[in-house]
Simulated assay, not measured.
Amino acid sequence: MLLLPMLFERFPNMTLPDPASVRWHGFGFRGPLNLPVRLQ
């Protein structure tokens, strides 16, 4: 998976302003339905 390392490299100051607002889905392959981040 190359997307996440590239994203973190491009936006090193990326933050998750409200972790409680992330909605999760799934059991075996659990993942976020949304991921509201702030890019700087």
Rank of each mutant, 00 (worst) to 15 (best):
M1D: 15
M1Y: 05
M1E: 07
L2C: 13
L2H: 09
L2S: 15
L3S: 12
L3R: 01
L3M: 03
L4M: 09
L4A: 13
P5H: 00
M6G: 11
L7A: 08
L7I: 11
F8Y: 10
F8H: 05
F8D: 00
E9H: 14
E9V: 13
E9C: 11
E9P: 07
R10Q: 06
R10M: 12
R10L: 10
R10V: 11
F11V: 02
P12W: 12
P12A: 03
P12L: 04
P12G: 08
N13K: 14
N13W: 15
M14Y: 11
M14I: 15
T15R: 09
T15H: 06
T15V: 10
L16V: 05
L16A: 03
P17W: 01
P17D: 05
D18K: 10
D18G: 00
D18M: 03
D18Y: 07
D18V: 06
P19E: 03
A20D: 13
A20L: 09
S21R: 04
S21V: 00
S21P: 03
S21Q: 07
V22M: 06
V22W: 03
V22K: 01
V22R: 00
R23I: 11
R23M: 07
R23H: 10
R23W: 07
W24R: 01
W24C: 01
H25D: 04
G26Y: 05
G26I: 09
F27E: 11
G28L: 15
G28Y: 15
G28C: 14
G28T: 14
F29V: 12
F29M: 13
F29Y: 13
F29G: 10
F29N: 15
R30N: 10
G31I: 07
P32N: 01
P32S: 08
P32M: 06
L33T: 08
L33W: 04
N34G: 01
N34A: 04
N34W: 00
N34P: 03
L35P: 02
L35S: 09
L35T: 05
L35Y: 10
P36N: 12
P36F: 04
P36Y: 08
P36K: 10
P36R: 04
V37A: 07
V37K: 06
V37H: 05
V37P: 08
V37S: 06
R38P: 07
L39E: 11
L39K: 11
L39C: 01
L39H: 06
Q40W: 13
